[in-house]
């Protein structure tokens, strides 16, 4: 084989281009066979993972939203119930107070009434007893003064009448 040394100009095209083409094709073949599938696999897997993670995150967010709504609904429910309880308690307390007052008033009225009745009865009794005493005294005194026996019953009626008149005058007077 003959090797001839020479020189090619700056833009001379010769057999180099064929060798370059073959070299490039061999390199491309090696890369396309052994390297790119791996990179593609990795990149695609990563994109898939990212997409899955995004979807999962979206799902988790939706779930969290739902939970939040649920919690808010429960909270609102609880607040309503509590308000109801408070309202009921307030109402029954008010009722109780009313009842108590009513009872107390009634009791007071009853006691007052009873006292009043008792006092009246006491007074009546006292008046009755005083009246009896006075009538007897008058009869006795009159007997002593006039020296004769009065018809106790007849005169007692008179005296009582007089006393009644006095008592009425005293009561009204």
């Amino acid at each position: 084989m003959l090797f001839l040394a020479g020189e090619a100009g700056v833009i001379d095209i010769n057999g180099t281009v064929i060798v370059e083409l073959l070299t490039f094709l061999v390199m491309f073949g090696l890369l396309a066979r052994y390297v790119y599938p791996e990179i593609v696999k990795q990149a695609e897997a990563r994109q898939r993972t990212i997409a899955e993670q995004l979807a999962a995150a979206e799902k988790a967010r939706a779930e969290a939203d739902a939970h939040l709504k649920e919690a808010q609904a429960k909270l609102e429910d609880a607040r309503k119930t509590a308000q109801g309880v408070i309202d009921a308690a307030g109402k029954s307390a008010e009722q109780l107070r009313q009842e108590m007052r009513q009872k107390a008033e009634e009791e007071a009225r009853r006691i007052t009434e009873a006292s009043r009745k008792e006092i009246e009865a006491e007074r009546d009794r006292a008046i009755q007893s005083v009246r009896g005493e006075v009538a007897n005294l008058v009869v006795t005194a009159t007997e002593k003064v006039i020296g004769e026996t009065l018809d106790a019953n007849k005169h007692k009626q008179l005296i009582d009448k007089a006393i009644d008149q006095v008592g009425r005058d005293g009561g009204t007077g």
């Binding site: 084989m1 003959l2 090797f3 001839l4 040394a5 020479g6 020189e7 090619a8 100009g9 700056v10 001379d12 095209i13 010769n14 057999g15 180099t16 064929i18 060798v19």
Partner: peptide, 18 residues
């Protein structure tokens, strides 16, 4: 400057390589 040293197999341009 700027030229390329070549070897040739002696069969024309396409057998000449930089």
């Amino acid at each position: 400057f700027g030229t390329h040293p070549t070897v040739s197999l002696g069969c024309g341009t396409l057998c000449t390589f930089n």
